[in-house]
Write a protein that binds this DNA or RNA. Structure first.
Length: 271
DNA sequence: ATGCCTTTGAAGGTT
DNA sequence: AACCTTCAAAGGCAT
């Protein structure tokens, strides 16, 4: 079942058509606020995502991830070559997509019988760290094993939204420019830069995020954002509001005082 | 070791 | 429908 889903997504990727009107970017699309707007039968156009940014500091390739693996039953292919092909701009996505270049398609070790069980970065154990499951299950009773399995059920992370994808690409650049490392400060800068982007530039990321969501739906059909609710420590409401100018967040998830900032696509001073 | 900070957007929950 | 809350990433910092 799961395997079928993964393989069908794989097939979709292998036959990923070139983007219509290469170089043209879609307008920012209305958010897909409900799944009903995404018919289950619709076949998404899948694309390579994070790794096809032109970031000088791309997300670590699976080769890096593999170094973190303590135990790997079978040898995995050398993927470095795939990542060397990721220097193109986002607007020039390759016509044929390597399945390995897309972290969202890196199969989790939970795929039974998969020859090269490459961990999916969106799947993390409850500890929050990439770990390998021990192979001592056979020593335990079925009941224990079942309970443990439930407890150690890996978390499937939310797909990244447009801004998160933008942050992922630009973080290293901002860090290099500002010699800052603190993420809170970096993210403030990135937030301002995000607003300074042109409509076309932002559209790239909205489109990318849309494809991310579609791909995520393909890979994890039953997944819901609700699955991860409460898995992070919940911050106290009062504290959160205090730290954010004491105001209430509006319908857009921002605070009125800050929302007084320039409208989205207007140029503004950055930094 | 764990949570907070800080950003935007998506989506689930509540009123 | 409108509003509220949580979580995605990231790394320094405080507890």
């Amino acid at each position: 079942m799961y395997k079928d889903t993964v393989y069908s997504a794989f097939n979709l990727l292998m036959h990923y058509p070139p983007p219509s009107g290469a170089g043209q970017h879609p307008q920012p699309q209305p958010p897909l606020h409900n799944k009903a707007s995404q018919p289950a039968h619709s076949v998404p156009q899948l694309s390579p995502l994070y790794e096809h940014f032109s970031s000088p500091h791309p997300t670590p390739a699976p080769a890096d991830i593999s170094q973190k693996q303590v135990h790997r039953p079978l040898q995995t292919p050398d993927l470095s070559g795939f990542y060397s092909l990721t220097s193109g701009s986002m607007g020039q996505l390759p016509h044929t997509v390597s399945w390995f270049t897309h972290p969202s398609l890196m199969l989790g070790s939970g795929v039974p019988g998969h020859p090269a069980a490459i961990p999916h970065p969106a799947i993390v154990p409850p500890s929050g760290k990439q770990e390998l499951q021990p192979y001592d299950r056979s020593l335990k009773t079925q009941a224990e094993s079942k309970v443990e399995k439930e407890a150690k059920k890996p978390t499937i992370k939310k797909p990244l939204n447009a801004f998160m994808l933008y942050m992922k690409e630009m973080r290293a650049k901002v860090i290099a420019e500002c010699t800052l490392k603190e993420s809170a400060a970096i993210n403030q800068i990135l937030g301002r830069r995000w607003h300074a982007l042109s409509r076309e530039e932002q559209a790239k990321y909205y489109e990318l995020a849309r494809k991310e969501r579609q791909l995520h739906m393909q890979l994890y059909p039953g997944w819901s954002a609700r699955d991860n609710y409460g898995k992070k420590k919940r911050r106290s409401r009062e504290k959160h509001q205090e730290s954010n100018t004491g105001g209430k967040r509006n319908a857009f998830g921002t605070y009125p005082e800050k929302a007084a900032a320039p409208a989205p696509f207007l140029p503004m001073t950055v930094l």
